[in-house]
Design a protein around this nucleic acid. Structure first.
Length: 197
DNA sequence: CCGAGGATTATCT
DNA sequence: GATAATCCTCGGA
C-alpha cells in the first residue's frame, strides 16, 4: 500500500514521526530495493533557521513549496545526494529528510553500490542510503505517491511509541540558533543499528 | 571504539 | 568567496 498525498499533507513533524517503520522502495531495472525507515528529521516553515526554506524561495528549494508527496533531492558538500519528501499543503515550505533505513530487499545490489563497506554502513546515514539505492538529482521532484516514478514509500509495521526516540537535529550550520538548534525534530527507532551516529 | 581533518561542487551573498 | 540537513580515512587506544 503506497503512502498517499493526504498523509504527506500533514505537518512535517507528524510525517517524520509516523514514517518510522514504513518501507522506502526503489525500483531499478524491474528489481525492488527497499528498507525500513528508522531515522528521520523534520524541517518546516519560514521561521525554521535550520531549513532550506528559511530564506524564502530559491531555484534549489522550490520543491519545498510545491505539492506534498514529491521528492526533494539535493547535493550537499559537493558530494552526497540527500533524499527528502515534501510535506504540508502547497505554499508551506516543509520536508522530511530520510536519514537511515534498514535493508530489506535487494541486498546484493546495495552491497555492490556500497562496495567494500560492511552491511552496517550501507544505509546508516542520509548520504549513504542514497548511494545504496542509487538515488540522485535525477529523482528531484518526482511524485512519490505512485509507482510510476520508481521511488515511493509503503506502509509498514508501526513502531510502538515506547521504541520511538526524539532529539535535536544533526549537522546544522552555525547560523542555526535556539529554539531551532535544540528543537527535538529528529526521530529514530530505539537501539536500531542503522541509526546514524 | 573514537576524534580530527580532508574531499569536493552547486548554490547563494 | 564562503558555505553546506555528510562521509571517509587515518592515527591512536
Amino acid at each position: 500500500m503506497i503512502v498517499n498525498r493526504d498523509f504527506y499533507a500533514q505537518h512535517a513533524t507528524t510525517v517524520a514521526r509516523d514514517l518510522l517503520g514504513a518501507v522506502l522502495v526503489r525500483r531499478i531495472n524491474g528489481q525492488r530495493l527497499s528498507g525500513r525507515i528508522v531515522e528521520t528529521e523534520a524541517y518546516s516553515g519560514l521561521d525554521d533557521l535550520a531549513s532550506h526554506g528559511r530564506a524564502g524561495r530559491t531555484p534549489r528549494n522550490l520543491p519545498m513549496w510545491e505539492a506534498p508527496g514529491h521528492a526533494y533531492v539535493y547535493l550537499i558538500y559537493g558530494a552526497y545526494w540527500l533524499l527528502n519528501i515534501v510535506c504540508e499543503p502547497v505554499e508551506h515550505p516543509a520536508a522530511v529528510l530520510i536519514r537511515a533505513i534498514e535493508p530489506l530487499e535487494g541486498e546484493p545490489v546495495m552491497a555492490t553500490n556500497r562496495a567494500g563497506r560492511p552491511r552496517k554502513h550501507w544505509t546508516s546515514g542520509p548520504g549513504r542510503l542514497t548511494l545504496a539505492l542509487a538515488v540522485t538529482g535525477d529523482d528531484n521532484r518526482v511524485d512519490m505517491t505512485t509507482s510510476a516514478a520508481h521511488l515511493w514509500i509503503e506502509a509498514g509495521q508501526p513502531v510502538p511509541e515506547g521504541n520511538v526516540c526524539a532529539g535535536p537535529r544533526i549537522g546544522l550550520g552555525r547560523h542555526v540558533t535556539d529554539p531551532w538548534l535544540t528543537m527535538p525534530w529528529r526521530w529514530w527507532v530505539a537501539d536500531n543499528p542503522f541509526v546514524s551516529k
